[in-house]
Design a protein around this nucleic acid. Structure first.
Lengths: 224, 224
DNA sequence: GATATTAACGGACCGCGGTCCGTTTATTGG
DNA sequence: CCAATAAACGGACCGCGGTCCGTTAATATC
């Protein structure tokens, strides 16, 4: 009688775009959002961003966002699915910018530098990104399931895995990657900074050290 | 006008014991719970455990617990503070047992084995513990702040740090410890098992590998 | 431009976590 | 045993996330 599992997700009702989707159609066009829908999405994102800036993400209610955007509450949920979805939407721009920086920007973050250097630069950038958007990120952390399946996390994970491989790391790359990703968990970073009082430089140095330990030759003997 | 921070905690109203406290008093006695309070705590814990077993932690409401224990809703909150507090209380016994096992049980988990072996055994035990209590642990994960400051996590962290030191690891032990602790995050373990389909053995092997990489000689050159 | 279709809208509604405060009851001191 | 005190009780109450469904209006077709 115990219900399936936490990871059993809401099935296929699947409205909830969270972002204007361009689904290809039979005739070669794209199924675009209706004009009013698109306008409301913009209004909602702007209102949400304003309220977050004013009161902190933690104190922004869905109803307040709806009201500030002069829109019904139902509309907010239809556009963004739930509170966490709205928060993710708020992060979308900066996350894309970050992705572009490490996928195709200038070295050492982007291609062109040796993999270990890129990895170190990546972590430093990720930590800074986390700090910059901390309060919204902490809100997205509410839904543990989505956190680990979110596209942004997958992209980061793939990037790390590729760099590890390029660096000649052997072993369970998937797990090593997850371990490295753990360094950017917003609540962890927040805790280390706020409660334990660690300066950013220390976190960055810790990341570099960790990368070195991970990369420095595989599980078997040290220095063949 | 932005409110202080997320980590700013509820000040000192400080009822919320979460566990029968034995505070020392002037006369040498202990300030114990009133009889009815203690009885209600037991009833609530039993009721909660039953409901969790029956319906899964995720579907247990505070009102249902109160009702099943024939107690008012207010009483549940006075005893355990909030939902997460109740969940932590449910985990208390097993967590203490685990602590005893690695602090004073037989080797290789307890004292007597070399530190690296203990560390590896610790991780394996922690992963199993996490899997065994997964659904309740996932509920405790709601409150990100408390997660990182919870006594149980501190104990685990101290244990890891001590073993790392004994193993002769140099570097930022605090950060290395946090990184290793990340391997036991319930939502991560759940994701790797449920979504990514990794068997327990793989997680355990991954832990051992990670310990090896962490321990194998510090940040500077490889094999002096 | 009129009509049909279908997506989008919005606010009433629900459930649950958490609080408040008037009432009850265990305890202690005489 | 009785009174006084303070702790514990319990349920009405509140706010917010999320859902539902009758209404509205954008688009497509003619």
């Amino acid at each position: 009688m115990t219900p399936p599992f936490r990871s059993a997700q809401l099935p296929p009702p699947a409205p909830v775009p969270e972002r204007a989707q361009g689904l290809p159609m039979a005739d070669g066009g794209v199924a675009t959002e209706r004009a009013d829908a698109a306008r409301n999405r913009m209004r909602l994102l702007e209102a949400a961003a304003r309220l977050v800036a004013e009161h902190g993400a933690e104190h922004v209610t869905m109803e307040a966002v709806a009201c500030a955007a002069s829109v019904g509450k139902g509309t907010v949920f239809r556009r963004f699915g739930d509170r966490v979805g709205l928060m993710y939407a708020l992060l979308d721009h900066s996350e894309r910018a970050f992705q572009q920086a490490f996928l195709s920007g200038p070295p050492p973050l982007g291609p062109g530098a040796p993999p270990v250097e890129r990895l170190e630069a990546f972590g430093v950038a990720a930590i800074r990104h986390t700090l910059a958007y901390m309060d919204v990120l902490l809100e997205t952390d509410q839904d543990a399931n989505r956190r680990y399946s979110h596209p942004a996390r997958l992209v980061r994970g793939t990037h790390i895995a590729v760099l590890l491989r390029e660096a000649g790391v052997t072993g369970d790359l998937a797990l090593l990657t997850e371990n490295l990703l753990g360094c950017f968990e917003p609540p962890l970073v927040n805790h280390l900074r706020t409660v334990r009082g660690m300066p950013v430089e220390r976190l960055e140095a810790g990341w570099r050290d960790l990368v070195d330990r991970t990369v420095r030759r595989g599980p078997s003997g040290c220095c063949p």
